[in-house]
């Protein structure tokens, strides 16, 4: 299958390993990955901060860039949520009904990674190997906006060597919320503190999720605490193989073994 990668600006700029892992994983599964290079950002930050007029040009760009592809994947529930649920709204607000309906078409063809693997490709075992104790944070937009349900957990349960431990109060927000983390830094930090307490209670080595943004938040807090727990994107775990593990004592996700 020919699959267009919607990398997301955050993964592109700050977390390229998640995006590279997505490419490696899909190629390993026998698919062709293309990267439309004119893509930049879906505009979610603009929309959620109150700048839909500024976001319009980004929505238009996104729709134009991805319209030619039948299947689009992103390693982010949040950005997929924005494409699927916000783009048409932004277009309609600007009175551009044609853009809105094109945005809806692109949105319907855009999948978060676990959705693509489970729903489109029909896989739960992707042949991954990741010998670590892992806990999964479901991230709000994956959970409640695009409703990936237990797809990520089904994928994780099939990873060899992986010990999955349940995260207490998993469905509570980590406190990121885009610019919320800065505009309401104190409240965001209080939410993060509880999330970190729950992560640490699992005694996992790795906290994973389907969104680099939430992982950046949780990871930033854990790093400040020097807690010794790594945050690793779901794609990196699913891309890891025993061959990776044999090299250099580090797996594909860079976690020392």
């Amino acid at each position: 299958m020919r699959i267009a990668l919607f990398v997301t600006c955050l993964a592109d700029t700050l977390f390229p390993e998640a995006a590279k892992a997505t490419v490696r994983l899909l190629e390993r599964l026998g698919h062709e990955v293309v990267f439309p290079e004119d893509q930049t950002c879906c505009g979610q930050m603009h929309v959620n901060t109150g700048y839909p007029d500024e976001a319009l040009r980004l929505v238009r760009r996104h729709v134009r860039v991805f319209a030619p592809y039948d299947v689009v994947v992103a390693p982010s529930g949040s950005c997929v949520g924005s494409v699927r649920h916000q783009h048409a709204t932004v277009a309609r607000r600007a009175g551009d009904e044609r853009l809105a309906s094109r945005a809806e078409e692109v949105g319907a063809r855009t999948h978060e990674l676990s959705e693509l693997l489970v729903d489109v490709l029909g896989l739960t075992d992707v042949g991954a190997y990741f010998p670590h104790r892992v806990t999964y944070h479901p991230t709000c937009h994956s959970l409640r906006m695009i409703r990936v349900g237990d797809k990520p957990l089904r994928l994780l349960r099939a990873v060899r060597g992986l010990e999955l431990v349940e995260l207490p109060q998993a469905e509570q927000c980590c406190g990121f919320g885009g610019t919320f983390a800065v505009k309401n830094a104190d409240t965001s930090t209080a939410m993060l503190a509880d999330k970190m307490r729950n992560v640490l209670a699992t005694r996992a080595d790795v906290c994973t999720a389907g969104d680099a943004s939430c992982l950046m938040h949780i990871g930033g807090g854990l790093s400040r605490l020097r807690a010794g727990v790594r945050t690793v994107h779901l794609a990196e775990i699913l891309a890891s193989t025993e061959a990776d593990a044999r090299g250099a004592g580090r797996d594909a996700a860079g976690v020392a073994r």
């Binding site: 990398v7 993964a11 592109d12 700029t13 700050l14 977390f15 390229p16 390993e17 995006a19 590279k20 490419v23 990267f35 290079e37 983390a181 800065v182 505009k183 830094a185 930090t189 993060l192 950046m216 938040h217 990871g219 930033g220 807090g221 790093s223 400040r224």
Partner: peptide, 30 residues
């Protein structure tokens, strides 16, 4: 870890480290 950033970004770094920027963006790698 971004601890010297000015407001409003200091709202982040008061309690959270920033990720170290990677040596290469995804599109450079691609």
């Amino acid at each position: 870890r971004g601890r010297g950033l000015p407001p409003p970004l200091s709202g982040w770094t008061a309690s959270r480290d920033l990720p170290a920027p990677p040596p290469q963006t995804f599109r450079e790698w691609w």
